[in-house]
C-alpha cells in the first residue's frame, strides 16, 4: 500500500493523470453533446481512431502538425455525419450503425495505412509530427503544481478549455438551448418549429469533432505514431464517464479525471506490489462501479420523488 501512496505523492503521477485524462475528456464531452440532443453516439471510438490516423498521415504529408490536427477534426466530424445519416435518414438502429462504424474504423485505418505507407499495423515509416507542448518553461519555476499543470500538450489545454466552452455552448447560447430542448422533449421543440433532425445532425457532427480532437491527441501528443486499435476502448470509457458525469460538462470533467486517475495508476503497474493485471483492470472496474452507482442513484431519486408525492397525497386525503 505504501508504494501506492508514494506514487500518488509525486508530481509526475498527477501530471500523467492529466495527460491520460485528455483523450477521455474530449470523447466524454462529445458524448455529452450528442446525449443532450437525445442521440447516443457509440461511434466515438471510431471517430477517435480515424482522427488519430488522419492526424498522423496528414501531418506527415504536409509536414505540419496543424494540418494534421485540422484533418483529424474534419474526419472526426465526418464520422459523426455518417452516423447521423445512417441513423436519422436510413433509419438504421443508431447502436448498430455505430458498431458498424467502429468496425470499419478498426479495419479501415489499417487498410489505408498500408495503402498510403506500406506499413502493417503501425505507422513506422511515416514521418509524422506531434503537436507542441506549452508552458514547458514554467514547469520548473512554479513549485509543486508547476510540474503538474505546465508542460502539457497543447490539446490537453484545449480539452480543459473546451469543458467551459461546452458549458457555455450548452447553457448560454440559443443553439445549446435548442439542443437541450430536443433532447429533453422533442415534441416541444417540434411544436415550435425547430427541426429535430437538423439539431441531432449538428450534435452528432460536433460530438464526432470532439472525439476527433481526442484522436489527434492520441497520435500526435500522447504518442507520436499511429498503431492498430490505439484508442483501446477510450471511446467506450468516455461513454461511461458521461453517464456518471450527469448533464453538466463540469461533472463530465470530474468523472473523466476519475478515470484518468485510475488509468494513470495502471501505468505504474511495475511499482505497485499488486499483480499488473489487477492494476490495469482498475479503470474498467471503476467504470462499472461508477455506472451502477450513478444509474441506481438516478433510479432511487425517481422512486423517492414518487414516494414523497404519494405520501403527500395520502396525508392530504386524511385531512379531508
Amino acid at each position: 500500500m505504501s508504494s501506492i501512496i508514494d506514487i500518488i505523492g509525486t508530481s509526475e503521477f498527477w501530471y500523467s493523470v492529466i495527460r491520460v485524462t485528455t483523450p477521455i475528456l474530449f470523447a466524454a464531452l462529445g458524448a455529452l453533446i450528442s446525449d443532450s440532443a437525445g442521440v447516443i453516439n457509440i461511434a466515438l471510438e471510431g471517430s477517435m481512431l480515424w482522427s488519430a490516423f488522419a492526424g498522423v498521415v496528414f501531418s506527415a504529408w504536409f509536414d505540419s502538425a496543424w494540418i494534421g490536427l485540422l484533418a483529424a477534426i474534419i474526419i472526426g466530424g465526418l464520422v459523426g455525419l455518417m452516423l447521423a445519416y445512417f441513423a436519422l435518414n436510413l433509419k438504421t438502429d443508431i447502436i448498430l450503425s455505430a458498431i458498424a462504424l467502429n468496425l470499419m474504423a478498426a479495419g479501415g485505418t489499417i487498410f489505408l495505412l498500408f495503402v498510403v505507407s506500406g506499413d502493417r499495423g503501425i505507422s513506422s515509416s511515416l514521418d509524422s509530427r506531434v503537436l507542441p507542448k506549452l508552458f514547458t518553461g514554467l514547469a520548473d519555476n512554479v513549485p509543486i503544481i508547476g510540474p503538474v499543470i505546465f508542460g502539457h500538450n497543447v490539446l490537453t489545454y484545449v480539452a480543459f478549455v473546451l469543458v467551459f466552452v461546452t458549458w457555455f455552448f450548452m447553457f448560454k447560447t440559443p443553439m445549446g438551448l435548442r439542443l437541450r430542448a430536443v433532447g429533453e422533449n422533442f415534441h416541444a421543440a417540434d411544436s415550435v418549429g425547430i427541426s429535430v433532425k437538423k439539431i441531432q445532425y449538428q450534435a452528432l457532427v460536433l460530438s464526432g469533432i470532439m472525439a476527433g480532437l481526442g484522436g489527434a491527441f492520441m497520435s500526435m501528443g500522447y504518442v507520436s505514431w499511429f498503431s492498430q486499435n490505439m484508442t483501446a476502448g477510450r471511446g467506450f470509457i468516455a461513454l461511461a464517464a458521461k453517464a456518471m458525469g450527469g448533464v453538466s460538462p463540469i461533472g463530465t470533467m470530474i468523472a473523466s479525471l476519475f478515470f484518468g486517475f485510475a488509468s494513470a495508476l495502471a501505468n505504474y503497474e511495475a511499482e505497485i506490489s499488486v499483480p499488473a493485471e489487477f492494476v490495469k483492470m482498475i479503470p474498467y472496474i471503476f467504470t462499472i462501479v461508477g455506472l451502477v452507482v450513478y444509474a441506481s442513484k438516478k433510479q432511487s431519486d425517481v422512486k423517492r420523488a414518487r414516494q414523497k408525492q404519494a405520501e403527500a397525497a395520502t396525508s392530504s386525503k386524511g385531512g379531508e
Binding site: D93, S97, G107
Partner: peptide
C-alpha cells in the same frame, strides 16, 4: 492489398442490412 479491407465491407453490410429505409 491489406486484408483489413474486410473491415470496411463488414461495416457497409451491417448498416445497409439493418437500415429500415434502405430500399424502403
Amino acid at each position: 492489398v491489406s486484408s483489413q479491407l474486410v473491415g470496411i465491407i463488414q461495416g457497409v453490410v451491417i448498416i445497409l442490412v439493418a437500415a429500415e429505409h434502405f430500399m424502403s
